[in-house]
Design a binder for these strands. Structure first.
Lengths: 194, 194
DNA sequence: TAATTTAACTAACAATTGTTAGTTTACGAT
DNA sequence: ATCGTAAACTAACAATTGTTAGTTAAATTA
């Protein structure tokens, strides 16, 4: 087994292009050109353009699912669980921002009904787990009484689109990102919260 | 002038389809079918598919720009300015979620360099205005000392993707959305901020 | 060395794409 | 009644799309 086999290279290159223009706007000739080969040569390694998308999206979605289930089954406080989820999103974003962009923007181009259903189930379950964490936190007094949807999607929206802006500024170290993100999401930005 | 002329109808239908599948994945035949006419008939009203995108994206972007400039020139506190921006995003999202989806996801498919540059300038200026508001707020003690990028994009990410989730739950009234969104974004979710 | 595998190539396909040309139909104003 | 316009239509186009077939060159294994 080579350090990175050819198929993995294709997937990484494709993910980068998908991030920039979206799945539908990227042609297999674009992907081939980015690898300095001809389009037909790609098919020695992949079955279809669609297969690339499936591998990118499902792999990352499963990663989120796995960790979320661990978190949910742990006995940490609600706030600690959310802190763990924040760090999970930062982890994956820093490691694979291109795949994350695909997950966010191109999942609806999964053509096989089974793939789409599988993905949507993972996403729904993920949000439902998050919802349960928030509700428990509200009940035991850790979290403010706000509409759970607003809490869930305020945090998730920020985390899901982190890949769009985290690397724009060099002044933002990984440590600062992790700490300030946690603080801003959990404690807000005003000086006198009460 | 009719209540809504035909061109406006096309743009609204197209925006809805673009929201669901993205600009590149929507064909002019898709748009025509959604209006119960043939693709060629569209060209009695529009110059090109691209023109539809330009009208959708630029119109909304200019709306954000106009209000942001008013806000920036006002003499409100930093927090009050941010509160106004939060309400602006909610306003536009409730009124035109489809166009907002295009703005977020399809701006990179603006084909004319002039259009793309114009849009990017508006977006950069918008973020820069937000950055200035935050920096002033930090200086005069209204806002916590956090990395400004984290503050700006935490809030903007949430507001920009509001169209994705605001209508999922019927349990979320407009009033609750506006109040809780403001509270969550500005004051966080924890009970003991200090 | 011979055999096999890997990974590239050229050429071509059928389908789909945005768009144009030219025509027809319905309707309000003169 | 006639004119003009708005808005639909059919038919067709050239370009681009994902993909396949068949071939070739280089590297690895026997």
């Amino acid at each position: 087994m080579k350090p990175t086999d050819r198929k993995t290279e294709i997937i990484n290159v494709a993910a980068r292009l998908f991030k920039e223009k979206g799945y539908s706007a990227v042609t297999v000739r674009d992907i081939a050109q980015a690898m300095n080969i001809k389009a037909a040569s790609l098919y020695n390694h992949i079955a279809s353009k669609q297969e690339i998308l499936v591998l990118i999206v499902i792999t990352i979605a499963e990663e989120f699912t796995t960790v979320m289930e661990e978190v949910q089954q742990s006995e940490a406080s609600a706030i600690a669980k959310i802190e763990r989820i924040i760090q999970l999103h930062i982890d994956i974003t820093l490691r694979n921002p291109d795949a994350l962009a695909c997950l966010n923007n191109d999942w609806m181009h999964l053509e096989q009904e089974a793939d789409l259903k599988y993905f949507l189930k993972m996403r729904t379950d993920y949000e439902e787990n998050f919802r349960q964490i928030v509700k428990v936190g509200v009940q035991n007094g850790e979290i403010q009484h706000r509409n759970p949807e607003v809490i869930i999607f305020s945090i998730l929206s920020t985390l899901r689109t982190l890949y769009l802006w985290y690397n724009k500024t060099k002044s933002l170290s990984e440590t600062t990102l992790r700490n300030d993100m946690r603080n801003v999401l959990l404690e807000g930005i005003t000086v006198n919260a009460r």
